[in-house]
Design a binder for these strands. Structure first.
Lengths: 303, 303
DNA sequence: AATTGTATTGCAAATGTTTTCATAAAATTA
DNA sequence: TAATTTTATGAAAACATTTGCAATACAATT
């Protein structure tokens, strides 16, 4: 190796200077340091990794980053994992669980020291892959006691039920729903289930044309809400699957000149950082993204 | 190697099955395939990397992810780079350029095939490191002709000047500014410079107590705006350094019962996806995050 | 001066893969 | 059938590093 040559020592000694400096004489260390600096040498982790030494990376595979939903989570996960000396290998699958499988495979090719995925629902191959490779893993954002793999997150069914019950308790009888597409998204599915459960157990029902699926974006939800508000009959409450869509609905209500919460109530479910500052205020269930990220990082780094 | 043993062939043949399958007999390939499946074998990229074969990773170092500013950029960059077969190694430095240097070093230890950074301003060591290691690099988000390294982004000075001139042209004379801290953030600095230039060249001046720096968050800006609006004299326009802060200012205005844009004008600079759907509408300069990400990915993948 | 102990370093093997070169086997041609 | 070409495979070196073991050097003790 070049540095060893330049410092006139063996490769072993260079290696030791990095990994067990106390075993090498101060003067030798200085020689090596100089050579390192002179040549601009940077250790090659790949070469370490094939020795079975950990790669120092954690694979993080998320559906998407740009909806601000996961951004906060990724940020806190990244910060926390960094403190353990790991770096994140990041990839997005766009709610396609087959792609997720392929991405996890790719992560394993890179010999990540662990994988973190969003949600509890994944392709069977993904589960068996993780199991066979015996790679530390963690599922984020959603929580269930009987999960196959370790998970940290909230119980989204409960969150949905909570918000549904809250709206019903406020006396609303005409309720509309705006949710994202549910396939491949167990978080949304469970929230939806929770909301429906709460509504049904109050003996209510959501009419077909008030039960909408809209794209996971402010504008998508705004359009959906507008289509509801255009009708001659109005709901008195719109329950949205998440804060981004709630924000869209809020904007639509403003556009129609409706006062919140006098004329209409809009609720979200809290995966959105800015929600607490919205005017008019949004009723929402907070989900502690930062805590989830931090806790997850700790769990997987210790594995 | 285990697979070679199990299939009773040499390691060379296994390698060829992956890289030059046409060179190996179909029957042998089948044997190897079976062994691979049976053992759940996954190629070790680290071992390839030490051969000088590319690692298939690009290092992306950003100030932060969770402000939704960069989320869209990261998303599009990630998608685009994925199409070239690369995976992202992601890290955040929290606007600390020394930390950024350390992170870039770490990326180089992992032998990334390229690095992408945010902004044009970086520690000298960072520049010399990139230069010495001759690693393909790209600077995102900001653009300048005389940049030391390749960059794709917008001219933030121009953006600032544009919005400043627009506000002045509308006849505003009492203008307040809310910007994020400028240290280590050349995007914000340049916008600020542009806005100030526009204001000064109209012969105007921003009073000290209307020229605020606030944290890069909705709530931070909301507070700052509130402190301005509490005074007995009001500005007729608030120019914010970015859309997140503009959103905060908007919320503050709503809280004070001010109508937009009749009573007060609020402008942002567009790094925020949902801005176009805000009610009341936000005046802003759009920055094409998706395009920047895509273009950057293409540039660096080709390098 | 001989012995023992300790501190420092190098050697060689190992890691998982790719690649070049050589060789063996099979197929083609004369 | 022999000679030649083609196809398929293996052996060995290379990549950058770590590590166990051996060797050397030096100091301390007897």
């Amino acid at each position: 190796m070049a540095v060893a040559k330049a410092a006139r020592v063996s490769a072993s000694t260079v290696s030791r200077t990095y990994n067990h400096p106390e075993l090498v004489k101060a003067s030798t260390r200085r020689k090596i340091d100089n050579a390192v600096r002179r040549l601009g040498y940077i250790r090659n982790r790949a070469a370490q990794t094939i020795h079975g030494i950990r790669s120092g990376t954690i694979g993080l595979v998320v559906p998407t980053i740009d909806h601000a939903i996961f951004a906060e989570l990724i940020q806190s996960f990244s910060e926390a994992i960094d403190r353990f000396g790991f770096t994140i290998l990041l990839a997005t699958h766009g709610y396609d669980l087959q792609r997720e499988y392929a991405l996890v495979r790719k992560m394993l090719e890179h010999r990540v020291d662990g994988v973190a995925l969003i949600g509890l629902e994944h392709a069977d191959e993904t589960f068996s892959l993780i199991e066979r490779q015996a790679i530390p893993s963690i599922l984020l954002w959603n929580h269930a006691d009987q999960s196959l793999l370790p998970c940290v997150g909230t119980n989204n069914f409960q969150a949905g039920k909570l918000i549904g019950a809250h709206v019903v308790d406020q006396g609303h009888r005409d309720i509309a729903l705006i949710f994202p597409p549910l396939e491949g998204n167990d978080r949304a599915s469970q929230r939806y289930g929770g909301v429906q459960t709460a509504i049904e157990s109050a003996g209510l029902e959501v009419p077909e044309n008030w039960n909408l699926k809209a794209p996971y974006s402010v504008s998508g939800a705004k359009e959906a809400a507008a289509s509801i508000l255009q009708g001659k009959r109005f709901p008195t409450a719109i329950i949205c699957g998440n804060d981004v869509q709630a924000w869209g609905a809020l904007n639509a209500a403003s556009r129609f000149g409706l006062a919140i919460p006098e004329d209409i109530s809009v609720t979200g479910i809290g995966d959105f950082k800015g929600s607490k500052d919205l005017e008019p205020a949004l009723t929402t269930v907070r989900i502690p993204a930062r805590q989830i990220g931090k806790q997850a990082a700790t769990t997987i780094a210790r594995a």
